[in-house]
Structures are given as structure tokens and as C-alpha cells.
Simulated assay, not measured.
Amino acid sequence: METIKIKIFGLFGMLGSIIAQILGGWDSALQTLLIFMAIDYITGLIVAGVFKKSNKSDSGALQSNAGWKGLCKKGVTLLIVLIGVRLDLMLGLGNFIRNAVVIGFCLNELVSIVENTGLMGVPFPPIVLQAIEILKKKSNEVKIPKGDESHGL
């Protein structure tokens, strides 16, 4: 029985290292993103399950469909990080694009965490809320240029 347990843990460890390597390595940026994602998901569950104030469902209560959508979004976020990693490799940029993508998603998760904890009634210092508002406005101002049709972009 002990050898089966060791093999299962070994398999999970191997899969975890492969995934981390594919996502650009197990560094502080990836760790921070995953921690923020977990905190956002957990606070979202608390807002819906305990406080019944979620804006993801009509009743504000916990719904498995909303939770599943949230997990899918987090999975797609990691796929976009993978795209950043591959672009960096292709262009020889080190971790430039990947880190920019990770930082962007960390900020997005942070905004969501603050919104969730705000729905719970957790007070925040006004300076933190002002900084987040500035980040939100700046992210809304960023426009992604459309590709030139003649080049197939």
C-alpha cells in the first residue's frame, strides 16, 4: 500500500513539474499568480456561499455552474500565460512577455479579490481602493491595435 502511495505522489509531482516548466518555471511570478487565483476563487465561494452576495448568480448564492465557469476562466488564464512563454521563446525575449502577462493577470485577480472582500464588508484603506481604481482605469484605456488586414493579422 505504501508503494502505491509513493507512486501516486511521484506522478503528481512529475505532472506538477511538467506544468510549471511549460508555464515558464516555478518562480515567484507564477507562484503569486496561482496564490492570487486561489484566493480569488475561495473569496468568491465565501461571498456566494456564506454572504449570498455574488454577482455571478441571479440569487447571489452559490451555484455550481458559476463555480465551474470561474475554474474554466482560471484555466484559460494559464493558457494565455503559456502563449506568453511560447512567444518569448520564439522571439528570444527571455521572460518579458510571460512576466507582463502574469503581472497583468495578478492585477486582475487582485481587483477581484478586493471586490469579493468588499462584498463581505471587509474595510480597505482608501489609498488601496484609489490605487486599484487607477489601475482599473489604466487597464480600460489600453487599446490593443488591430492588425493590418493586408498582412493577415
Results as ranks from 00 to 15, higher is better:
Met1Ile: 03
Thr3Gln: 09
Lys7Cys: 05
Phe12Arg: 03
Phe12Ala: 14
Gly13Phe: 10
Leu15Pro: 04
Leu15Ala: 15
Gly16Ala: 15
Gly16Asp: 08
Gly16Cys: 11
Ser17Leu: 14
Ile19Glu: 05
Gln21His: 10
Gln21Ile: 08
Ile22Trp: 13
Ile22Pro: 01
Gly24Val: 00
Ser28Tyr: 11
Ser28Ile: 11
Gln31Leu: 09
Thr32Gln: 12
Thr32Tyr: 07
Met37Gln: 13
Met37Asp: 01
Ile39Met: 13
Ile42Met: 06
Ile42Ser: 01
Ile42Phe: 09
Thr43Trp: 01
Gly44Arg: 01
Ile46Thr: 02
Ile46Trp: 00
Val47Leu: 07
Ala48Ile: 03
Ala48Met: 04
Gly49Met: 03
Lys52Cys: 09
Ser54Asp: 00
Ser54Lys: 02
Asn55Ala: 12
Asn55Gly: 14
Ser57Trp: 02
Ser59His: 04
Ser59Val: 01
Gly60Glu: 07
Gly60Lys: 04
Gln63Lys: 12
Gln63Trp: 00
Ser64Asn: 10
Gly67Ile: 04
Trp68Asn: 03
Lys69Asp: 09
Leu71Thr: 07
Leu71His: 01
Leu71Gly: 05
Cys72Ile: 14
Lys73Leu: 03
Lys74Asp: 02
Lys74Ile: 11
Lys74Gln: 14
Val76Lys: 01
Val76Ser: 02
Thr77Cys: 09
Thr77Phe: 07
Thr77Trp: 03
Leu78Glu: 08
Ile80Leu: 15
Val81His: 02
Leu82Val: 10
Ile83Val: 15
Ile83Gly: 08
Gly84Val: 07
Gly84Lys: 11
Arg86Lys: 13
Leu87Glu: 03
Asp88Cys: 08
Met90Thr: 14
Gly92Ala: 05
Gly92Tyr: 06
Gly92Lys: 08
Leu93Ser: 15
Gly94Leu: 05
Phe96Glu: 07
Asn99Lys: 08
Val101His: 05
Val101Trp: 02
Val101Lys: 03
Val101Gln: 04
Val102Ser: 00
Val102Pro: 01
Gly104Ser: 06
Phe105Gly: 02
Leu107Ala: 08
Glu109Cys: 08
Ser112Asn: 11
Glu115Trp: 04
Leu119Pro: 00
Leu119Ile: 00
Leu119Gln: 15
Leu119Asp: 10
Gly121Asp: 02
Gly121Lys: 01
Val122His: 04
Pro123Met: 10
Pro123Gln: 13
Phe124Ala: 13
Ile127Arg: 14
Leu129Glu: 14
Gln130Ser: 14
Gln130Asn: 12
Ala131Tyr: 07
Ile132His: 11
Glu133His: 13
Ile134Leu: 14
Leu135Asp: 06
Lys137Gly: 14
Ser139Ala: 14
Ser139Met: 13
Ser139Ile: 09
Asn140Leu: 13
Glu141Met: 12
Val142His: 12
Pro145Leu: 11
Asp148Arg: 09
Ser150Ala: 14
His151Ile: 12
Gly152Arg: 12
Gly152Tyr: 09
